[in-house]
């Protein structure tokens, strides 16, 4: 479904991704794991067109999206839940969700997606007319995911959804991702919380200073002694 071939990206003249290649198949949940500054966020930002690639290509459903602008990439079905949530703090929860559905034309689809989001996150329904900036961090993350679901994603890009959340909130977010996975939504999950990410995902890539150093089935990687040592804090 998504194919990244020899992608390199420069940031202020410094190459931060070195010719990386990745694939995501339909219905799959793929994790991208790495230390701070490894370039995980850059991968997502380049897929969604916020950053321009220096070379290489990104194909989505066979179509080259490398040079497309963000709004066209969103229109093709790639929805990005950005790092730090990036909700519209001065607008209401309802407006945030409506903005998620900005490109959706079919009213019945919008209505269905609204109901889906409300059943996943009942708190959003209770606070519909409240300003989004007043929500707690965990609630903001729910709003960010809910907003993305209103975009009717074919591929969901999630950047550190557990960042800054309490352990209980983190569990809630991961259980939501689990249920989205069961629904068959294809996902690319960037996480520092490597253990959780490997637990939930089908496959994973490990990114170190802009290079993919390891890839494979998550169930295998979680047993890998090197991965354990570097990312899982175990021995």
């Amino acid at each position: 479904m998504l194919e990244i071939n020899k992608l390199s990206v420069k940031y202020d003249n410094i190459r931060v991704l070195h010719y990386i290649s990745m694939q995501i198949r339909k219905g799959e949940m793929v994790a991208l794991i790495g230390a701070n500054g490894a370039g995980k966020t850059t991968v997502l930002r380049t897929i969604s067109g916020l950053l321009k690639a220096e070379s290489g290509e990104i194909l989505f459903e066979g179509k080259d999206i490398t040079k497309m602008s963000s709004h066209n990439i969103v229109a093709s079905g790639i929805i990005h839940v950005p790092e730090g949530r990036q909700i519209f703090t001065k607008m209401t929860i309802e407006e945030n969700l409506k903005l998620g559905a900005y490109l959706q034309r079919d009213r019945s689809v919008i209505k269905r997606n609204f109901e889906k989001v409300f059943s996943l996150f009942p708190i959003l329904k209770q606070r519909l007319h409240q300003q989004a900036g007043t929500l707690s961090g965990g609630e903001q993350q729910m709003l960010a995911i809910g907003r993305a679901l209103l975009g009717n994603p074919k591929l969901l890009l999630l950047d550190e959804p557990s960042m800054g959340l309490s352990p209980i909130m983190t569990q809630q977010v991961f259980s939501v991702l689990e249920s989205l996975k069961k629904e068959g939504i294809t996902m690319l999950l960037v996480e520092q919380n490597a253990y959780e990410a490997l637990e939930i995902s089908d496959r994973a890539y490990i990114l170190e200073t802009g290079n993919i150093t390891l890839e494979g089935r998550s169930s295998g990687l979680i047993q890998d002694p090197n991965v354990k040592k570097a990312y899982l804090g175990g021995d």
């Binding site: 990005h80 990036q86 519209f88 607008m91 490109l103 975009g151």
Partner: peptide, 16 residues
């Protein structure tokens, strides 16, 4: 309003 609240997030909503 979305653009003046958060320009980058607006791009991710599909706003031109």
């Amino acid at each position: 309003r979305a653009c003046s609240d958060n320009l980058n997030a607006s791009k991710l909503m599909g706003i031109n």
